[in-house]
Design a protein around this nucleic acid. Structure first.
Length: 422
RNA sequence: GGAGAGGUGGCAGAGUGGUCGAAUGUACCUGACUCGAAAUCAGGCGUAGGUGUAAGCCUACCGUGGGUUCGAAUCCCACCCUCUCCGCCA
């Protein structure tokens, strides 16, 4: 959510900045609402003050045993107008809230301008895409050859966009989650958290998934939603809190499944486990002082990259352009890993600084001299576990269809160094 | 699932229709005293919003949402949550 004061004072410049992400801000609507709000609110508060004064006077008179019928008659005449004004004010404020909740974040000045994915800017590249002296197979073919990935049975169990993993491949998947958690807690200073996999609507509003993107979520009985990312429960830890200055920065890591309806992506990535309704992810979240958030974004990105380096997987980092960024982000880096079968870099992590956008929705603040200030929030995948598994299968494949285990994972694989083709 | 108790400021804890945004204690901040500290004394100390150049003034908030009333922390209704006991369960 944007600061309403900024909209009041300088809506033109906000409009211009949002244009760069392809969002057209309805300035006239805002100004009309704001004008109404101002007059109705002023009048309402005036009437409330009158009523309060009269009620107080009645109390005083009655306390003395005097007659209060004159004032009572007076205050009765306020009643209807007050009620009407209060009701109207509430309507206007709700409308205003809805309006504000639907506005995306303003891109940071360092974000490249662009109107499509093609305008994303490559920031750096690490490692050499491997070439094989045989035709590289994709993870679906490899996984089935290892008796490790079974999409047909997953369809029977649940439907499309689910995976059944078995044997060493299932173990490799588990190993990856463990490896990532251990690295971030052991070397990068994150506190491991275990969180609910279902959350309420308020949490989703806090991080920006609601009210605009309900169709991307799975909702379940009882008013809960399955989390689309650990970002939601983890970031909402600080919702409604006023933190002490020395509590910052807070750094959390969580390994959770994520559930996404993938509405609107029919036909995209239907093959394999690139795009699933359920996938595991290790998520980093930082709650930081506003002056430190861009520093924090770079370090968080580095923490995610470190996983790929230790696994020796070639990748590149791109800075998303204005149009391609998510709703809540002020700046986003994607990390893309090399997939030999697709001969392309594919997204495996997304690291974003939300500045105060989520904090304002959540009312997450910290105490400074004299007043309370909104924190900045950041998060990033480090990494998407399923896609990392895909990357390992494809990058570590051997000519006979067996797959080597990255050395960093040996301790987690009980000595297994190669998953043999069956 | 059954029975009971309860949700008030950072914490503890009063307040059951009226000058209550809320006593008191404690924590915290400032000042005095002190060589310094402790103790003591004085003052300050919630959040959000409106309005104003400002000082300030005003409004809302006592789990949440409704209702009754001139007036609600206090009365009524619904919901949420916490605790205790019983049952069940990983």
């Amino acid at each position: 959510m944007l600061d309403i004061q900024v909209l009041r004072n300088d809506i033109q410049s906000v409009e211009k900045k949002l244009e760069s992400r392809g969002f057209s801000l309805d300035v006239a609507c805002f100004q009309a609402l704001e004008a109404q709000r101002k007059s109705v609110q002023t009048r309402t508060q005036e009437l409330q003050a009158q009523r309060n004064a009269a009620s107080k006077a009645i109390g005083v008179k009655k306390g003395r045993g005097e007659d209060a019928s004159v004032i009572l008659a007076e205050v009765a005449s306020i009643g209807d107008e007050l009620k009407a004004n209060e009701a109207r004010l509430e309507e206007i404020q709700e409308e205003m809230q809805e309006f504000l909740l639907a506005i995306p974040n303003i891109p940071h000045e360092s974000v490249p301008f662009g109107l499509s994915e093609a305008d994303n800017v490559e920031v750096m590249k690490w490692g050499q895409p491997k070439h094989f002296d045989f035709e590289a197979r994709d993870h679906v073919s490899l996984g089935e050859g290892l008796a490790g990935l079974d999409f047909e049975t997953a369809v029977k169990l649940a439907g499309s966009r689910f995976t059944l993993m078995q044997g060493p491949v299932a173990r490799l998947h588990r190993a990856l989650g463990q490896f990532m958690l251990d690295l971030h807690t052991g070397e990068h200073g994150y506190v491991e958290v275990y969180v609910p996999y279902m959350v309420n609507a308020e949490s989703l509003r806090g991080t920006g998934q609601l009210p605009k993107f309900e169709e991307d979520l799975f909702s379940v009985a009882g008013g809960y939603y399955l989390i689309p990312t650990a970002e939601v429960p983890v970031t909402n830890i600080v919702r409604g809190e006023i933190l002490s200055l020395d509590a910052l920065p807070m750094k959390f890591v969580a390994h959770t499944p994520c559930f996404r309806s993938e509405a609107g992506s029919y036909g995209r990535d239907m093959r394999g486990m690139i795009r699933q309704h359920q996938f595991d992810k290790v998520e980093l979240v930082q709650i930081v002082h506003p002056e430190k958030s861009y520093e924090a974004l770079e370090s968080l990105l580095g923490h995610a990259e470190e996983i790929l380096r230790r696994l020796d997987l070639p990748y590149r980092v791109v800075s998303l352009c204005t149009k391609d960024m998510g709703f809540s982000a002020a700046k986003t880096y994607d990390i893309e890993v090399w997939l030999p079968a697709q001969k392309a870099y594919r997204e495996i992590s997304s690291c974003s600084n939300f500045e105060a956008f989520q904090a304002r929705r959540m009312q997450a603040r910290f105490k400074t001299e004299g007043r309370n200030e909104l924190v900045h929030t950041l998060n990033g995948s480090a990494l998407a576990v399923g896609r990392t598994l895909v990357a390992i299968l494809e990058n570590y494949q051997l000519a006979d269809g067996s797959v080597k285990i990255p050395e960093a994972l040996y301790p987690y694989m009980g000595g297994l160094e190669v998953i043999p083709a069956s």
